[in-house]
Amino acid sequence: MTAQTDIVGQLVEFPTMRGCPATAGALPWIEDGRKVAPKDARALSRLFFDQLQALEEGSREHQYARNTLIAMSLSMVRFTAGRFRNRPEDMEEIIQVGTMGLIKAIDRFDLSREVEFTTFAIPYIVGEIKRFFRDTSWAVHVPRSLQERRIVLAKARETLTERLNREPTTTDLAQYMDLTREEVSEAMMASNGYTADSLDVPVGDGTEDGAGAARTDRLGSDDPGMAAVENLQVLKPLLAELGDRDQRMLQMRFGQEMTQSQIGAVLGVSQMHVSRLLTRTLDRLRAGLLTQA
Rank of each mutant, 00 (worst) to 15 (best):
Q251T: 11
V201F: 09
R60G: 02
S221R: 06
D135C: 05
A265V: 08
V8E: 09
R253D: 15
A187M: 07
D90C: 11
M272V: 14
A214L: 01
R85L: 00
C20V: 03
L69I: 05
P168Y: 05
D110N: 14
A43D: 00
I263W: 03
S45F: 00
V184T: 10
N67T: 10
R83G: 06
T5G: 09
E89C: 01
G19Q: 05
R276N: 10
A287S: 06
D200F: 05
S112V: 02
L55W: 07
K35D: 15
M1Y: 09
P28H: 01
N192K: 14
L111T: 02
D135K: 14
T80H: 07
Q63G: 01
H273M: 09
L278W: 07
E148R: 03
M177H: 05
R60T: 03
Q251M: 14
S275I: 05
E31H: 02
L285E: 06
A211Q: 14
A26M: 00
L11T: 14
L44M: 07
Y124H: 13
R157M: 14
W138G: 11
L146D: 11
L44G: 00
A156E: 04
A54D: 12
Q260W: 12
M76E: 04
P15G: 04
R87M: 11
S73K: 07
T259P: 04
Q53C: 06
P202T: 15
A3G: 08
T68G: 05
P21I: 01
M91P: 08
T23I: 01
